[in-house]
Simulated assay, not measured.
Amino acid sequence: MTGEDGYFGERVARRYDESSADMFLPGIVDTAVDVLAELTGTGTALELGIGTGRIALPLSQRGVKVRGIDLSRAMVARLHAKPGGSAIDVTIGDFSTAQVPDTFSLVYSVFNTITYLTSQEAQVACFRNVAAHLQPGGRFVVEVEVPEVRKLPPGHKIVPLYSSGTQWAFDVYDMSTQSMTSNYIEIENGRGENHSIPFRYVWPSELDLMAQMAGLRLYNRWGGWTRHPFTHESAKHVSVWEKPGY
């Protein structure tokens, strides 16, 4: 059961930056922001699932006007509490359907956020919503992992993520529905807590078809923010689709 903030309520939000600390390292953030700033150009950008502002804040510090959509008020409250965060306008809602009264030269979704939409229908709707918010010639950028199903031995459905004396995490895959859950167990002060977050994993070719259905065309695909080639061994991809100009 989830509250109005979905799976990123106060309990998750208050620890999000700390638990994802590796993703906040300057070498990771700056490389992504370099690409996004270049693709935005002199226009404006919209982030889907803006969260606590890991990417939006440094991108706005580059002089890019950034807006956001996010379901979690708890996450957005932390963004707005950070220096410069109050200047970023955020629409509260589901980014597959929420409307923002503007159009953009860039819409982007990073760090697997597209997979928080847990049905194919919602992911298709997201592409259509993005297309409606893009200016002619605008681009949609998605950073997402390639599904790790090659790690599954025959007959198994669990992929371990990490373990320690007090923390364990693992993903559970359902190959028949392309659904998965990330499960986290933590013991603190002798008390155990666990939470699970559902996802729908999606293949690059499937995303391309969703883009085509929304009237977008593939502009480029890389194996990461350094723009190295995407290959059959790539663990993730950064894909860019473009809305044709008039």
Score class of each variant (00 low, 15 high):
I114C: 09
C126P: 02
V90Q: 10
S105A: 15
Q99N: 12
Q123P: 05
P101Y: 11
A98H: 08
A125V: 05
F111S: 03
Q99L: 14
I88Y: 08
R128P: 00
A98W: 10
I88K: 01
A98E: 02
T113G: 00
G85N: 15
F127M: 08
I92Q: 05
V90I: 06
A98P: 06
I114K: 06
I114P: 00
P83F: 11
T113N: 10
A125C: 04
I92G: 05
A122H: 09
L117Q: 08
Y116F: 05
V100P: 11
G84E: 10
G84V: 04
V107S: 06
Y116V: 06
I92A: 11
G84Q: 15
S96Y: 00
A122R: 13
D94G: 08
A87G: 07
L117I: 06
S109H: 00
D89A: 14
V124I: 08
S86A: 13
L117H: 02
E121F: 01
T113Y: 06
T97H: 13
P101I: 03
A87I: 02
A98S: 07
T113V: 14
T113D: 04
Y108Q: 07
V100M: 13
D102S: 15
V100T: 10
F127E: 07
V124H: 08
S96L: 04
L106P: 00
F95Q: 01
T115G: 10
Q123V: 06
A122F: 04
D102C: 07
A87W: 04
S96N: 09
Q123S: 11
P83Y: 04
N112I: 05
L106Y: 01
Q99T: 15
F104Q: 02
P101G: 10
P83C: 10
G84D: 09
P101M: 03
R128H: 15
T91K: 12
S119V: 09
T115S: 15
S119E: 09
A122W: 00
S105Q: 09
T115R: 14
P101D: 15
Q123W: 05
V124Y: 01
A122S: 10
V110K: 00
N112Q: 12
E121A: 12
L106F: 06
A87H: 11
Q120M: 09
V107T: 04
V107I: 08
I114Q: 08
Q120R: 13
V90T: 13
